[in-house]
Design a protein around this nucleic acid. Structure first.
Lengths: 152, 152
DNA sequence: ATAAGGATGACTCTCATTCTCATTAACGCT
DNA sequence: AGCGTTAATGAGAATGAGAGTCATCCTTAT
């Protein structure tokens, strides 16, 4: 799988740049994240998915985040989720089911992204903020929950 | 202050509707939130601001949230923030400083809101999601941090 | 092959948040 | 006003995600 090879090389590079190593555990974590593409994974899913002890998993996810390989995704849940960084997968947003916690990637039309970016940048500047990124999430009810509990 | 009276009445009504009471503590919490308008407050700020014991504060914030009076705001920080619900204050978004954690309200032009809503709704529908709300945050560096640490 | 420094894993610790439970205060009714 | 029902309170214990510690293991460069 060439795409995967590319991914691992990119990851290895980023880690090396900050003086870290691309070990088997980190590879397993990246693999688990890549396998779940389009669906940010909770820490505990990654723990078991990658077969890594928890102290190492937390440490390695932090290292990967520092290297810009991985991004922590915040939701309303009491635990964190992780996904591959946008530099590796492309810019996207999230559909978040407020009933079951399911999180799924979506992309919006470039024209909207452009409008949003332009406007937000202007607004932020006015407030003395230098915008680095925007986060646009959709909170609602996923198909499964709508079927299970009836449409609200 | 008539505006404040209105607020308290609205809150009392919402609580009563779900069979809860508007006690002095809850009033103190709402007051602390109203005083901090435009700046979501951390739980610990509210604790001391309202002079309420922590177990009661958490319980009451949960009650107020359930009544739709208050909203929990998630950030990258390891603790929660709260603000008055949008039904009481109006729809808005947040500027979040990734350096110091400062959070500040902003509003965007209605035209952009409309575009965003329309587009997102279409996208979500296609994915089987029923959108309830959107969350649009700007992450960046606030003026204070830019001055303190230099522009990055 | 060897030294230096990162990585590992079992375990402990922290800290926000939630739970428990005995006590108190509010509201509805007569 | 008196009473009973039920929510609210507050102190403290429990929970759980995540971060820290430390002795040991592995890599990588020399």
């Amino acid at each position: 799988m060439p795409a995967s090879t590319e991914l691992h090389e990119a990851v290895a590079l980023r880690l090396r740049e900050i003086g870290h190593r691309y070990t088997a555990q980190r590879r397993a974590l990246v693999e688990a994240l890549a396998a779940a593409a389009g669906r940010p994974r909770s820490t505990s899913e990654l723990l078991e998915g990658a077969g890594v002890p928890q102290s190492s998993a937390y440490r390695n996810l932090a290292a990967l985040e520092q290297a810009g390989v991985v991004r922590r995704v915040v939701t309303d849940e009491e635990f964190a989720r992780y996904e591959l960084a946008e530099e590796l997968t492309g810019h996207h947003h999230h559909l978040i089911c407020s009933s079951c916690g399911r999180v799924e990637d979506v992309t919006v039309p470039p024209s909207l992204e452009r409008d949003v970016d332009r406007t937000l940048d202007r607004i932020a500047r006015r407030a003395g903020f230098a915008v680095v990124e925007h986060r646009l999430d959709l909170i609602g009810t996923c198909g499964g929950c709508a079927a299970r509990y009836g449409v609200r």
